[in-house]
Simulated scan of single mutants.
Amino acid sequence: MTLVDSNVLLDLVAADPQWADWSIASLEAARLRGPLFITDVVYAELGVRNQRIELLDEFVAKAGLELVGLPRPALFLAGKAFAEYRMKGGTRTGVLPDFLIGAHAAMTKLPLLTRNERRYRTYFPTIELILPVSAGPG
């Protein structure tokens, strides 16, 4: 089982010239190991790129993704990790989704397929990250 981050799926939606091939290959490899999950937060982030819910649901189904809700302990952990980020001087305010996704992976002990290494490694060091070799700072 693998949890999939928004950036990997957005690579497919946007046909990103740098990352789409890696994201497709990584999704296929993860699918061979078991089901692919997205959190409701990832679903919401994908919704930004879709005009209708039916189109988003079609994409999710074609990609073979299962939608799972965030467990309450993960919500709490995300809030604590975000508070720590802010106390350490983090100024970006639009990063809470990353903390929710990271906390979900940490609480469920699912590996996370992502290109965003830095924040996940810093605030959720126990999660297994599936990353490209040159993921960059995230």
Rank of each mutant, 00 (worst) to 15 (best):
L112S: 04
P73D: 03
I127R: 00
D98A: 01
R92F: 04
T91Q: 14
D11I: 03
E58S: 11
G136Y: 10
D57Q: 14
T114I: 05
F59T: 10
V8S: 10
A30Y: 07
G34R: 05
E45Q: 09
Y123S: 11
G102D: 02
D98C: 01
M1A: 12
L55R: 11
S26K: 12
V42C: 03
P137M: 12
A20R: 13
Y123M: 00
L129T: 00
G34D: 04
P73N: 10
P125N: 03
E128N: 13
G136P: 01
L131C: 09
L75Y: 00
V8F: 01
F99H: 04
P17T: 08
L12P: 06
R33E: 15
E117Q: 15
V42F: 04
Q18W: 02
H104D: 06
L36F: 10
I127V: 12
P125L: 00
T108V: 11
A78W: 11
A20T: 09
A15P: 04
Y120F: 15
L113R: 08
A20F: 03
E84C: 13
D5C: 02
F124C: 07
M107W: 05
P73M: 08
V8G: 06
L112E: 02
E128L: 14
Y123T: 04
L96I: 13
G89I: 09
L70P: 07
A14E: 13
A61M: 06
T39Q: 12
L100F: 14
L96K: 00
E128R: 15
V41E: 06
Y85Q: 08
Q18I: 10
L55W: 09
F99C: 12
E117H: 12
R115S: 05
E45V: 02
M107V: 14
T108S: 14
M87F: 12
I130R: 13
E58T: 06
L131W: 00
P73Y: 01
V13A: 06
L56N: 09
R121V: 07
V13D: 02
L131R: 02
I101K: 05
A78T: 03
L112G: 02
L65W: 02
L9I: 07
T93L: 15
L96F: 15
D21L: 13
W19V: 06
A29H: 15
G136I: 10
L77K: 13
E58L: 08
G47T: 14
L75Q: 11
A15R: 14
T126A: 14
A30I: 04
